[in-house]
Simulated scan of single mutants.
Amino acid sequence: METLRLILRYAHLIGFALLLGGAVAQYFAGKFKINAAMAWGAGIQVLTGVALSAPLGRAVQPDAAKLAVKGVVAVLIAVMVLVPFFRKRKQEGGAVVASGHFHGIVLMTLANAAVAVFWR
C-alpha cells in the first residue's frame, strides 16, 4: 500500500507542475489563456487528491479538515480551468479568460500547495 500511496503522491505533484507550469508559461507569454497543460493538471490534481485521501492502510490518518479545505479548493480550481477550456477548446492555443480569473487560478493553486505543506 505504501508504494501505491507514493505513486499517487508523485502523480499529484506532476499534476501540480502541469497546472502551475502551464499557467506560468501563459503568463510570461502575455496571454491569459487556459491551455491543455493546465486542464490536465487540474484533472490529475483532483483525481489523485481523492485517491490520496483514502486511508490506504496508514496508521495515522490525515486531518479531515485539511482534506476538506484542499478538496474544496481543488474542485474550485478544476471548475475554473475545465469549464472555459471545454467551452472554447477549438480556439487556437486555449480558452482566453479575464486576468482576474487567471490570477485567481494561480493564487488558489499556490494556496492549495501552502495548505498541503504548512497545515499539520
Rank of each mutant, 00 (worst) to 15 (best):
M1I: 10
M1Y: 14
E2F: 10
R5D: 00
R5N: 14
L6I: 10
L6R: 12
R9P: 01
H12A: 04
L13W: 15
L13G: 14
L13I: 12
G15F: 03
A17L: 15
G22F: 01
A23D: 09
A25E: 12
G30C: 05
F32H: 12
K33P: 04
K33N: 12
N35S: 09
M38K: 07
M38I: 06
A39E: 02
G41C: 10
G43Y: 13
I44S: 02
I44L: 11
T48R: 04
G49D: 03
G49E: 01
L56A: 00
G57L: 08
R58S: 12
A59H: 06
Q61C: 03
P62L: 08
P62Y: 00
P62N: 09
A64P: 06
A65G: 11
K66H: 07
A68G: 10
V69E: 09
V69R: 07
K70H: 14
G71S: 05
V73I: 15
L76W: 08
L76E: 10
V79K: 02
L82D: 09
V83R: 14
V83P: 04
F85K: 03
F85V: 08
R87M: 15
K88I: 02
R89N: 14
G93K: 14
A95C: 06
S99A: 13
G100V: 00
G100R: 11
H101E: 01
G104N: 07
I105R: 04
V106Y: 04
L107T: 13
T109C: 00
A111E: 06
N112L: 05
N112D: 13
A113F: 15
A113I: 13
V115E: 01
A116R: 06
A116D: 04
F118V: 04
R120S: 10
